[in-house]
Amino acid sequence: MKKIVIHSGYIKLDQFLKLSDCVSTGGMAKALLQEGHVLVNGEKEDRRGRKLYPGDKVEVKDEGLFEVAGGEE
């Protein structure tokens, strides 16, 4: 599992997908979500604006499992 550090209280799912290098554009994130290839905490997620908080786990088909980690402020 790869940890992705954020430096704010939360991050939106589409931004997280870009930060974790799963996609390079918002359009790619939208397509990935619409195809059902993203799980958040074990449940299928299709909302780009879904807020992720430290401790949340994101699984992306063919990319792996990621965990949101809080950074030092």
Rank of each mutant, 00 (worst) to 15 (best):
Q15M: 06
S8Q: 06
R47K: 15
K57F: 01
V38Y: 00
R47D: 04
K51H: 12
D56E: 04
L19Y: 00
R50T: 05
G49E: 08
V5Y: 13
L13Q: 02
L32T: 13
L52R: 10
K61P: 04
R50A: 07
A31F: 06
L65E: 12
E67A: 10
Y53K: 09
E45A: 13
K2Q: 10
G42E: 04
L39A: 02
R47N: 13
K61C: 09
K57W: 05
K18I: 05
D21R: 15
T25Q: 11
F16E: 00
E35G: 09
L39T: 01
F66N: 14
L39S: 01
V38D: 05
D14T: 01
E59Y: 04
V58W: 05
K2V: 11
K3V: 04
G36M: 09
G64A: 14
D21I: 10
R48M: 13
V5Q: 13
G9W: 10
G49M: 12
D62T: 07
V23M: 14
A69E: 12
D14H: 01
D21Q: 11
K44F: 03
D21Y: 14
K3G: 14
H37Y: 09
D46H: 09
E43G: 07
E35M: 11
A31S: 12
I4M: 14
M1K: 08
K61M: 13
L19C: 07
L33V: 04
K51M: 11
I6N: 10
C22I: 09
A29E: 00
V38G: 05
V38M: 06
E73S: 08
G55T: 08
K44E: 04
H37T: 00
M28A: 14
K12H: 06
L65F: 11
A69W: 02
G27W: 04
E45G: 10
V60E: 06
A29V: 02
L33F: 14
G71I: 06
K12F: 03
V58M: 08
K44W: 00
N41G: 03
K44Q: 09
M1I: 02
H37R: 15
L19V: 06
G26F: 09
L13R: 11
D14A: 10
D21E: 15
E63R: 13
F66E: 05
I11C: 01
Y10P: 03
G9Y: 06
V23L: 13
K12W: 00
I6P: 05
K2N: 05
K61V: 13
G26R: 04
L65P: 01
G55R: 07
A29K: 01
G71Y: 11
I4G: 01
R48C: 07
V40N: 03
V68I: 15
I11E: 00
S24N: 15
C22W: 03
K44L: 08
H7R: 10
D21M: 11
V68S: 04
D46G: 11
H7K: 13
V38R: 04
S20F: 05
L13G: 07
K18E: 00
L17K: 06
H7W: 07
A31V: 15
I11G: 00
E59V: 01
M1N: 05
L33D: 01
E59C: 04
K2W: 00
I4S: 08
L33K: 06
N41F: 03
V60R: 08
V5T: 15
G26K: 09
G70Y: 08
L52T: 03
Q34N: 12
M1R: 06
I6Q: 06
S8N: 12
V40L: 02
M28L: 13
K44C: 02
E67K: 07
F16H: 11
V5A: 10
E63N: 15
